[in-house]
């Protein structure tokens, strides 16, 4: 039985899905049986980040009962993934009611199931956090992201979801809140500081995951370090 880890952020736009997708790729490359599931059913983006052509089965098909979840697992960029639909007709009215049981099936078949959740604290996010055993908080080093991150931590604690730590994304500005201050305020480990890195945007533009297209970029190196820490290699 593996572990399900929600990748969460207190607000959209912090780079959570890019972090989640690349972390899945790197964990897979290290020999960990990893699945990434797009749990952001209103704004799915894992497929785009992994460079998957749309048209196959999605988490939306699983949630609506139209597809067997195991058949929706695809291989992409060296990892396994269940991506979300991007068609408006599938997004409207999508529900996560069946998500906990689907996730349990996946957790039985993989070492780690990363679930990219919706940003913020809407009902969908709360359902995903409550369905997962553990949570990784992605935030940017600014006061808004930190404050909203505290709200995610409060919800995770109430739901009994273990908080593994925080990943600070887009760091490197002199006006960043320092990582040690964030760790101290939030009382959690900062597992990684992912730098602001133009190759991330370039990779998104090119439709290739940054850790695949640019493995020597500062972001890719740090995501490997994060993966090492998560599986206890460092």
């Amino acid at each position: 039985m593996g572990i399900s880890v929600c990748i969460a952020s207190g607000k959209d736009g912090v780079g959570k899905s890019v972090v989640a997708a690349n972390l899945a790729i790197v964990l897979s490359s290290l020999g960990v049986e990893t699945l990434i599931v797009d749990g952001d059913i209103e704004g799915a983006s894992v497929g785009l980040i992994l460079g998957v052509d749309p048209g196959g089965l999605t988490i939306h098909d699983c949630l609506s009962g139209k597809a067997d979840p195991k058949k929706a697992v695809i291989e992409a960029s060296g990892t396994k993934a269940v991506i979300g639909a991007i068609g408006i007709e599938q997004l409207v009215g999508a529900s996560l009611e069946n998500f906990p049981s689907i996730l349990e099936d996946f957790t039985g078949a993989f070492d780690i199931v990363l679930v990219d959740s919706q940003g913020g604290l809407g009902d969908n996010t709360v359902t995903v956090i409550g369905s997962c055993q553990a949570l990784l908080l992605v935030l940017t080093p600014d006061i808004g992201s930190v404050t909203n991150g505290l709200k995610i931590l409060a919800v995770a604690k109430k739901l009994g979801t273990t908080v593994l730590g925080a990943l600070i994304n887009r760091s490197g500005s002199p006006y960043d809140i320092p990582a040690d201050k964030i760790a101290d305020l939030m009382r959690l480990d900062v597992i990684g500081e992912l730098p602001e890195d133009e190759t991330v945007k370039r990779a998104l533009f090119e439709g290739v995951p940054v850790s695949v297209g640019y493995p020597d970029s500062p972001f890719s190196k740090e995501i490997r370090s994060v993966a090492d820490k998560l599986i206890g290699r460092t």
């Binding site: 006061i143 930190v146 404050t147 505290l150 709200k151 931590l153 409060a154 604690k157 305020l185």
Partner: peptide, 8 residues
């Protein structure tokens, strides 16, 4: 966490 959110 709620106290910290309130403060900030």
């Amino acid at each position: 966490d709620e106290d910290k959110i309130r403060a900030l």
